[in-house]
Amino acid sequence: MALVSVIIPTYHRSSYLPGAIQTALGQTHDEVEVIVVNDDASDTATLNALAEYTDDSRVTAINNTERRGISASRNQAVAHADGEYLCILDDDDRWRADKIEQQLTRFNQLSSEYAVVYTGGEIWSTGEPRRVLKQFSPPESRIGEIYPEVLSSWGMSPHSGHMIRTDAFRAVGGFDETMNHGEDWDLSIRLAKRYKFDAVDEPLTIRLSHDENVSSKRAHANQRKDILAKYPAPILNDESIGSEFFSKWHAERGYHQLENGKHVAAIRDLWIALGYKPTTQRAVLFVISLFGPRVFSSLSDLSRWWRTVMANRTSNQPRV
């Protein structure tokens, strides 16, 4: 059986961390090691949480005396990994029990050209009763050879759904520790230049929605700025990639402007998005923006309610 290394970076998340460790140890695939990098060795609550696993040989804890950041912590975990495959896991994410087993089954059906098998996912509310707020499905455009299309948008959320061949991860140099945002997207770009991707189209990964999420809307808004800074030539020199990249960027900006009540700025960004690459969805959003923030807010509430209803009709929530 293949050994799978689960890497968990954590920073002041003692209330979430035990659930992440348990979701990894509770997999139907038995050959699992868990490597936790605690980015603050002075955090007593996290140390106490990790002390519960002192006698469990499957769990390795690394405590940093100086904060290194999420990318460096992940690379640090991989440096200690013995597994043939790596599974990314954030401390506030959870898995269905057969997630690793299903991914290994898929990998066994693929050639060595493939470096990543990822999964679909869900976002859950943290209150009781828990509700599914949103679902993610792997898009067809992110299967097989996905470069250079992956430059226009990532499209493979959540990152905790990714299983990566360890040798491929190391071959591309791991996470870029200089990036402040979009390090998961950047890693996928570098992997996609050399390898193929596949996916298990089931919601096997769960992201918990709460106020402390690192992947905040502001961070997402800054991803494109950092990706463009790192890959200016392939984005700017390919008309199709560039138009999609900038159209999505301005559409995202426009949407966030509407959420924050910045009506005029939203109209400007959405109009620019349509200029780069018009789509029905972007056109509808632009028309909605013309009616002002109140109409947008009402329609957004209705849309979220409908997505939640539909998601909960199809979701079988596991115990986590």
Rank of each mutant, 00 (worst) to 15 (best):
I189M: 06
L191H: 06
K193G: 07
K193E: 15
R194F: 08
Y195W: 11
K196G: 03
F197R: 05
D198S: 14
A199H: 00
A199F: 01
V200I: 07
D201Q: 13
D201Y: 00
E202A: 13
E202S: 03
I206R: 05
I206S: 10
R207V: 12
R207D: 08
R207K: 11
L208F: 12
L208M: 14
L208W: 09
S209C: 06
S209D: 14
S209T: 02
H210D: 12
D211W: 07
E212H: 14
N213R: 15
N213Q: 15
V214Y: 15
S215I: 06
S215N: 13
S216Q: 09
R218Q: 15
H220D: 07
A221S: 13
A221C: 07
R224C: 08
K225N: 04
D226T: 12
D226H: 04
L228R: 09
L228G: 02
A229W: 03
K230W: 04
K230R: 14
K230N: 10
Y231L: 02
P232F: 05
A233K: 12
A233H: 08
A233V: 13
P234Y: 02
P234L: 09
I235R: 01
I235D: 10
L236W: 00
N237T: 15
D238T: 01
D238C: 08
D238E: 03
D238W: 00
D238I: 04
E239W: 09
I241L: 07
G242K: 00
G242S: 04
G242N: 09
G242R: 06
S243T: 14
E244W: 02
S247Y: 00
K248W: 10
K248M: 11
K248Q: 15
W249K: 01
A251D: 09
A251P: 01
A251V: 02
A251E: 13
E252Y: 03
E252F: 05
E252A: 14
R253M: 11
G254C: 07
Y255L: 11
H256R: 10
H256K: 10
Q257E: 04
Q257C: 11
L258N: 00
L258G: 01
N260F: 01
N260I: 02
G261A: 05
K262W: 07
K262E: 14
H263K: 12
V264L: 13
V264M: 02
A265C: 05
A266V: 04
I267Y: 02
R268N: 14
